[in-house]
Design a protein around this nucleic acid. Structure first.
Lengths: 255, 255
DNA sequence: TAGTGGTCTAGACCACCTT
DNA sequence: AGGTGGTCTAGACCACTAG
């Protein structure tokens, strides 16, 4: 015995905003809605979201479904949850920026935020490589920057950054940029970097780089080629960092 | 109204193997039990675990609790689940080994398994650095290997591996080792590598390396320093790979 | 058709934080 | 004391796979 399916009527009273779609779980639709609101800055970084029950009622799904959606987004670093307090939109705190996007650690273990000196910042037409990396059309313009980053008062990284000009109106004249660029993008332009893909290789230092870093030409440098991606999957920054790894290493976890 | 707590009696009939412990959720205890069985090879790689309901009954918890434990372990790459089939212990398939533990990709995108030639393999006392990396005591012995790895018929990586001798009895005489070492460790010695931490830097090629890789001495090489960790958290392999990155790059995802 | 994992719901209780 | 997220249960139904 013990079976006899109950054929219980399911949610026929309330006008459900969300319907079961084939191959699209409810929680995935909830995620999409929340993701859209984050993109639109409907909830701003640092703000608290409504509680699980409020969201569940608004979208006419159960609290458990909302919970799964929120937890998935926590795993993507888009949200943070604190027991007894609430669910919050992630911010680029210094700690977070260091942990997620700055991977150079001192060989004796500790990690500090670098300080930067911008050498140049200009607007110009994108090169073919830049258009490729940033998925831009022909004739597009970019903002290109060149800077040196120091750790413990010594120059360690030479960096070239490229941004699509259309996404960053007005950027380019000033050389005084904040250290935490991703927070700057978010605060000034509403652009949230959600992830990045990097490809790393070893290259010989060019003359200018050697001079800036105080090393010999052709000395080995670690080159980190990174494209930063927003929540909605668009590339917004191409960054090539060349690092002197005599005192620092690039760390990664596998598995 | 609508409140009135039901004070329902909870699981008093069956002799529960698991009790609520302060600060230790049930699902965490379930995870520990399953993890222990994996370490002991009670369930072997490739084998199916009992179904959620069977595990739930055995441990006298609900199916939902087992589900959470299993999903957590899928996120750690220890288990794989396939709808309609079951839950399986992860194996080191070639695909998986490539994806998880071999991070050198051709610049044109594709990725192939390298082929290796072992130059030397010996047993000897561990150096201080080796004891440090592998958490060994004084007087411990290691198995040390030296090999060259080729991609598309061309030498690209020079690699030095160090293993604690006590964990790999009998290893060391033969120079013919399989390409997929982690599968070999698992199959021959019951040692399962679960994760690895890597630190990457740029170094000049030494004379011997340059000769083996067919490049100039002092040319820049990418050095990957990796310690592999088992399910129970012990280091079992220290590997230093020096790679010619003129045709390949090391890839990483961030965020 | 039977069995597995995947989704969804509903409700109770717990732990933590704020007021 | 009241609200939040965290854990746990129980049960129904869905989607996929195999015999």
């Amino acid at each position: 015995m013990a079976s006899k399916p109950k054929t219980a009527k399911r949610k026929s009273s309330k006008p459900a905003q969300l319907k079961r779609a084939p191959g699209k779980p409810l929680y995935a639709q909830v995620e999409e809605i929340i993701r859209k609101r984050l993109i639109d800055n409907y909830w701003k970084p640092g703000e608290a979201l409504p509680s699980e029950f409020e969201l569940a009622e608004e979208l006419s799904v159960s609290q458990g479904t909302v919970r799964k959606a929120l937890n998935d987004m926590v795993a993507e670093n888009l949200l943070e949850r604190r027991q007894g307090r609430g669910t919050f939109v992630s911010e680029y705190t210094e700690r977070r920026a260091l942990f997620l996007y700055f991977n150079l650690k001192s060989r004796d273990g500790d990690q500090t935020m670098p300080s930067s000196r911008t050498l140049a910042c200009e607007q110009r037409p994108a090169t073919e490589t830049e258009r490729d990396r940033l998925e831009l059309g022909e004739g597009a313009y970019v903002v290109a920057m060149h800077r040196v980053r120091e750790l413990r008062e010594r120059p360690v990284i030479v960096e070239r950054l490229t941004l699509p000009r259309d996404l960053f109106p007005g950027l380019g004249g000033d050389l005084k940029l904040p250290e935490n660029l991703y927070r700057f993008y978010q605060g000034e332009y509403g652009i949230t970097v959600a992830k990045a893909s990097e490809s790393v290789s070893a290259v010989p230092a060019e003359a200018l780089e050697a001079q800036l870093l105080g090393i010999m030409p052709d000395a080995p440098l670690l080159e980190i080629d990174r494209v930063a991606i927003t929540i909605d999957g668009r590339p917004v920054e191409w960054r090539v960092s060349r690092c002197n790894t005599s005192d620092y290493t690039y760390v990664a976890e596998r598995g």
